[in-house]
């Protein structure tokens, strides 16, 4: 995930995974704290994505290459 931009889906899945890991409690203290920090970061990331402003409809055009144009109201 380091090379790829994190997606909402990946973040959400990882958050679920961490919740399970922490609940199973089979990890050492240092790891527990690292996972907890990661979970907090993921929560922030996901919440920000959800709370982002409404996106306008865009139009895909293909000429020399692809272009996105905001839809005219």
């Amino acid at each position: 995930m380091k090379n790829k931009e994190m997606t909402f889906e990946n973040a959400f899945t990882r958050l679920e995974e961490i919740a399970e890991l922490l609940e199973n409690g089979q990890i050492d203290l240092q790891q527990t704290m690292a996972l907890f920090e990661e979970a907090s970061a993921l929560t922030t990331f996901c919440t920000e994505k959800i709370d982002a402003a409404e996106k306008k409809l865009q139009i895909l055009t293909r000429d020399d290459g692809f272009k996105l144009i905001d839809e005219a109201d």
Partner: peptide
């Protein structure tokens, strides 16, 4: 889900 990106190919 207002923040989702919507792209139309007419």
């Amino acid at each position: 889900f207002p923040s989702v990106v919507k792209i139309l190919r007419p």
